Simulated scan of single mutants.
Amino acid sequence: MSLSQPLIRFAVPDDDEALSRLDRDTWSYLHAVKPREQPPYRPFFTDRFGPRDHLVAELDGRVVGYIRLGYPTALPATAHVRQIQGLAVADSARGHGLGRTLVRAAVDRAREQGARRITLRVLGHNTPARKLYEAEGFVVEGVLPGEFLLDGAYVDDVLMGQALGPGVWRNAAARDS
């Protein structure tokens, strides 16, 4: 199956139901630390993450993916950092580079916002996501071993990041060399 070129855009309030459905349809312990949501379903957009915190991939007028970009904390000391806090691609659209397109769009958006770093957290057993992030320049900056108990197995929480501008060190080894 060949996909047409996706439209990457900011989410709008009318995307709430489609994004909520996408989250439910793609839910898996491979990437989720919360149990599967049960009805009644909560709105996708919240006070913390609204439409402008999401970039959406749309194909032929249908929402097929999103990436959430936020701040890692509310502290002024981390205002220069953006964090990818969610990524989903519909099963029907996987394998065609949409995840990569969304990650690149998030990195571009972080740069537009003046961020000097972008970070994320990924589950250690999520090999496809880790390979994607590594291919897009993210490096492992830390591992919290066995941080989550998911579906009867202990899973690592892998912290990844990359520098977006001058004067920000990728890691302590680069700084000390």
Rank of each mutant, 00 (worst) to 15 (best):
S92N: 04
R117K: 12
T78P: 03
R104T: 11
F49P: 04
H96G: 07
P51Q: 09
A57W: 05
G97L: 14
A93E: 12
A77V: 08
S92A: 14
T73Q: 07
S92L: 06
H80I: 00
T119Y: 06
T46R: 07
E58C: 02
L69K: 05
A135I: 08
D91R: 11
Y66S: 06
R111N: 13
L123D: 08
R104P: 04
H96E: 13
R42G: 11
G70Q: 07
R130S: 12
A129N: 12
A135K: 12
P51W: 14
Q85P: 02
R62M: 10
G86M: 07
H80R: 06
T46W: 04
Q113E: 15
L55V: 01
A110G: 13
D108P: 08
Q85S: 12
V81A: 09
D47E: 15
P76Y: 11
D53P: 01
V89C: 07
A93Y: 02
T101I: 02
V81M: 09
P51R: 10
A77W: 05
A106D: 08
L98Q: 14
A110K: 14
Q113S: 14
E58Q: 08
D47V: 10
H96L: 09
T119S: 12
V56I: 12
T46H: 04
A115G: 09
A88Q: 02
R109I: 00
D108S: 15
R82K: 13
E112I: 05
I84N: 00
Q113T: 01
K131I: 09
R104K: 15
L120C: 14
L123F: 09
Q83G: 02
R100L: 11
A106I: 00
A57G: 08
A90F: 03
G97R: 13
L87N: 02
R116K: 09
A90M: 04
H125M: 03
A77P: 01
K131L: 14
A106E: 03
L75C: 10
V81F: 06
L98T: 15
A88K: 07
R100F: 09
V89F: 03
R117D: 03
V81Y: 07
R100N: 11
